[in-house]
Design a protein around this nucleic acid. Structure first.
Length: 589
RNA sequence: GUCCACGUAGCUCAGCAGGAUAGAGCGUUCGCCUCCUAAGCGAAAGGCCGGAGGUUCGAAUCCUCUCGUGGACGCCA
């Protein structure tokens, strides 16, 4: 089904043609003067020059041609040359009924593409902290949007499980427990099945080792060497690495599940390690890679660059792989396993340079096809109320679990304050609302900008917040539930949406019609915040309508049934939209 | 130093394939519950869209310069 703007534009374009002008001037947009009209066309002013005619004359002629058009209840020319349009009730109701019966509410999708969204990047052995929140939330939403648009989409967590942090942990462990068999080079037996550390010990070991390496050069040297040994296949180190993974990954999975974030692939840097030697050889053989300052690099600077782009480093001067190496090898792996048309990296925007290098190198060396779309969606920093990076009161990095627990507690308090509820039920609802508060709070901002994580604001039921959205959906559900209860036996819910009965109802209907445009735009721009803005508009329109209309007590059955059908569509649109953002609504709250 | 992003109401943010009077929310002030969840709705006050030029019939939106803030600039990830 064509979007409402497309349909109206087509009609107006025909009008321009009939009046003797080029059809291209008939493009219609949303009105920016809702007090005057619902849709507007500015084509007459654009065409004035070409036709040497006053814009108002052109607009008048077009309006005259279209004055009997059944889709419009009003079309008029206004100085200096605007065409102001209101759609007819019949047209609007017909459009909504088309949405109701159409797949994806009439949203048209293009031929499916294969897309990989890379949006995790947590390091194993480290607990998730608030820095991982944005990647998870934005990436999950992007993945769902891509999928909704009919594409085949893979979400990959892309674990940091192969770099220096593993060497650091191994080295620190060696200092603490040198007698473990993993450090005995002559040991040939089987290593223990149980890890020599617990999760919380592991979480303590890494920061300790990291801190040590910053002060102690010898320790850092050792860690670098251990990293290299691990990558070379040292048996004991590899066994330790497996322990680290076995202890850490289940915990990561649990944390992501808590956020309703899930990945199709749990691959990591380690899973592409075997690819690296061959890839590097190819780059050398084909003349892409050369030595520079002891390291192996590929030049990626281009003539048109306005700044210097350093070469893409493939191997460090000690021969070890690094970030770029594994990212490139990952591209090789992904091509072999999935052959994606499009890759989207949801990563902190400070890593932009790195990805420019990787993308250019991949294209240049043929690791990515020339027509593969490589996108870097860099997100901004999550700041505290003071405008500085989000920290705990003590100034440390806050664990993600702690943050989520805090928000849940706040929500639980609010829910129990306002309503008497069963404690278990309240707990469940609090979890759902808390997730909405966090995710909506993040996604309603443009991803690329820094934003302020304000707990008080996000958990509020007032304003543009997750809880307000859920509250509105619950209101709708509540009416539908009551309506259903009153229905005799197995009668079906009414389906057909009727003509709007008042301004508030028409306004709600008009908001709903924007669905296709909004989803398509948020997909094109990879911009979930567009969906947030849309949802908020729909909720406001609904609440206004709700306030003016007594639905359940309406005596005119046809009217009432039309409203129920409209509520069902509103609910479905809202629930579909929040699902694209990565959260859901409860039945009651 | 070079390059990039951002600067919109007291605060937090939309709007940026140029259009008619720049929008929300919070906060402030004032109304509205015998009625489907008042966790709601309505209204008021609050702006030289950082500054200066330019392109255009028309600029918050495009271009140039300038000031301010943040970030990136080869062996961390």
């Amino acid at each position: 089904m064509k979007t409402i703007l497309e349909q109206i534009s087509e009609t107006v374009s025909r009008g321009f043609e009939k009046a003797g002008y080029d059809a291209s001037y008939g493009k219609v947009g949303l009105s920016n003067r809702p007090d005057l009209c619902e849709f507007q066309c500015n084509g007459a002013m654009a065409g004035a020059k070409a036709y040497h005619k006053a814009p108002i004359m052109i607009a008048n002629e077009v309006a005259e041609v279209l004055k009997d058009e059944s889709a419009f209840s009003e079309i008029g020319a206004v100085a200096p040359g605007f065409l102001n349009i209101k759609v007819s009730d019949d047209f609007l109701a017909e459009y909504l009924n088309g949405m109701r019966t159409g797949e994806r509410f009439g949203l048209e999708v293009a031929a499916p593409k294969k897309i990989i969204v890379d949006y995790g990047g947590p390091n194993v052995a480290k607990p998730l902290h608030v820095g991982h929140l944005r990647a998870a939330i934005i990436g999950e939403s992007v993945k769902r949007i891509c999928r909704y648009m009919g594409n085949e989409v893979i979400g990959d967590v892309h674990l940091g499980d192969w770099g220096l942090q593993m060497g650091l942990i191994i080295t620190e462990l060696k200092k603490r427990c040198p007698d473990l068999p993993y450090f005995d080079e002559s040991f040939t037996g089987e290593y223990p099945k149980e890890a020599p550390f617990t999760l919380s010990e592991l979480e303590e070991i890494y920061p300790a080792a990291s801190a040590k390496s910053k002060e102690d050069d010898a320790f850092k040297e050792e860690a670098l060497e251990a990293t290299k040994q691990l990558q070379k296949g040292n048996r004991g180190y590899h066994a330790l690495w497996e322990h680290i993974m076995n202890v850490s990954v289940p915990d990561l999975k649990r944390n992501y599940a808590d956020l309703s974030v899930d990945f199709d692939w749990w691959k990591g840097e380690s899973s592409v390690d075997k690819i690296i030697p061959g890839m590097v050889d190819d780059m050398k053989k084909n003349g892409f890679a050369h030595e520079s300052e002891g390291a192996l690099v590929v030049d990626v600077a281009e003539q048109s660059d306005t700044k210097e782009i350093p070469p893409c480093m493939i191997l460090k001067s000690d021969g070890a792989a690094l970030y770029t190496t594994t990212d490139l090898a990952t591209l090789v792996d992904r091509k072999n396993n999935f052959d994606p048309d499009h890759l989207i990296y949801v990563v902190d925007k400070r890593q932009e340079m790195h990805f420019i290098q990787v993308f250019r190198c991949a294209k240049k060396t043929g690791i990515a096809r020339k027509d593969t779309q490589l996108d870097f969606l860099g997100f901004g920093t999550m700041n505290g109320k003071d405008g500085k990076p989000f920290k705990t009161r003590e100034g440390g990095v806050m664990r993600l679990e702690t943050l989520i627990a805090d928000i849940r507690e706040t929500m639980l308090k609010k829910i129990t304050e306002n309503h008497e509820t069963d404690p278990q039920e309240a707990e469940k609802t609090a979890r759902i609302v808390a997730l909405a508060a966090i995710k909506y709070g993040d996604l309603s901002n443009q991803a690329t900008k820094d934003y302020i994580f304000d707990t008080d604001k996000f958990t509020s039921f007032e304003g543009n917040t997750g809880p307000y959205i859920l509250y509105t959906i619950v209101r709708i559900k509540s009416i539908l539930a009551k309506y259903k209860d009153a229905l005799s036996g197995a009668s079906a819910l009414p389906e057909v949406i009727g003509l709007p009965q008042n301004d508030a109802e028409k306004a709600l209907m008009l908001e709903i019609t924007k669905f296709s445009q909004v989803i398509a735009l948020s997909y094109e721009e990879i911009a979930p915040h567009r969906i947030c803005a849309y949802i908020y508009d729909v909720c406001n329109a609904f609440n206004r309508f709700y306030h003016e209309t007594r639905i359940l007590t309406e005596e005119d059955t046809a009217r009432k049934e039309g409203w129920i059908a409209l509520l069902i569509l509103t609910r479905d649109i809202l629930e579909t939209s929040i699902d694209l953002l990565g959260f859901a609504a409860p039945e009651k709250m």
